[in-house]
Design a protein around this nucleic acid. Structure first.
Lengths: 119, 119
DNA sequence: CAAAGATACATAAGAATATTATGTATAAGT
DNA sequence: ACTTATACATAATATTCTTATGTATCTTTG
C-alpha cells in the first residue's frame, strides 16, 4: 500500500513554468504527456502536472516564441513535440537562476539551513 | 543606487501562508504592518507582501482558528495583533515541513545541489 | 474479444490567490 | 503645509491552477 502525499497546490503553483523549461532544456524535444510522466516519475508522484495546466502553458510558450512545435504521427495518433528556441534556452536559464535565488531567500526567511547554488 | 530585483509573482504566490505562520511561530504576537516590514527587511526587499494579500489571509486564519487577535490602541491609532493558537503552532510546523520537503523535491527535479532539512 | 486502462491531445467552467486601486485615518518628518 | 510612514480594510481585476468534459487510439487483461 502506498500513501501518496502531494504538496498543497498553492506551493506547486508558480513552479510549473520553471519545471517545464528545465526539462525541455535538457531533453532537446518532448511532448506534453511525456512531460507529465517524467515529472511524476522524478518526484515519486509528489508533483503531478495536470493536463489542464500543462497544455495551456505550452500553447502560451509557443505564442511567446519560447518553444517551437513539431507534429509527429505515431500510427494513427498524433504527438506534438516541443523544442526550446534560443530565446527559450535563455528563458530557462533565467527561470532556474531565479528559482535557486528564491530558495536561498526563503531558507533565510524560514530559517532552514543550507543554500542552493545554480551555476 | 539600488536595483531591487523582486521575484516573479507566481513564485512568491503560495508561500505567503508559510511565511506568515513561520514569523508568528517565533514572535508570539505580531500585527499586519509589522509582518510586511519584517519580510521586506529579512529578504532585502526581494519579497514584498502587499496589504491586499496579507489582510484577507490573516482574516482567513482567524476564521479557521489558527490565530487569535487582540486590538491595541497606540495613541489614537489601532493595531491588531495576531497570536498563533495551539492548532496554529501545529499548522506552522506542518507548513514548514511541507515547504522543506517541497524544496528537496524541486532540487532533485531541477538538479540543484544540496538538500534542506527541517527538524 | 470486450472492457478497462493507458496514451495523447484540447478546452471550458470554476476556484483560489494574488495584484492593483481605492478608501480612511493618525503620526512623523521636512 | 506637504509628503511619507504607519495601520487598518475592501473591491475589482488578473493570473493560474483544478476539475470536468470531450475526442480518439493503443494496449493489456480477464
Amino acid at each position: 500500500m502506498y500513501l501518496c502525499v502531494m504538496y498543497s497546490s498553492e506551493l506547486v503553483k508558480g513552479t510549473l513554468k520553471t519545471i517545464v523549461l528545465k526539462l525541455l532544456s535538457e531533453t532537446e524535444k518532448m511532448y506534453g504527456y511525456e512531460i507529465t510522466q517524467k515529472v511524476k516519475e522524478l518526484t515519486d508522484s509528489k508533483i503531478v502536472i495536470t493536463e489542464g495546466a500543462l497544455y495551456p502553458l505550452l500553447h502560451q510558450l509557443e505564442a511567446e516564441g519560447v518553444v517551437t512545435t513539431e507534429i509527429v504521427n505515431i500510427g494513427k495518433r498524433v504527438r506534438k513535440y516541443y523544442t526550446l528556441t534560443q530565446a527559450g534556452n535563455e528563458r530557462a536559464k533565467e527561470k532556474l537562476y531565479e528559482f535557486a535565488d528564491f530558495i536561498n531567500t526563503m531558507n533565510i526567511l524560514l530559517d532552514l539551513k543550507p543554500t542552493v547554488k545554480y551555476v
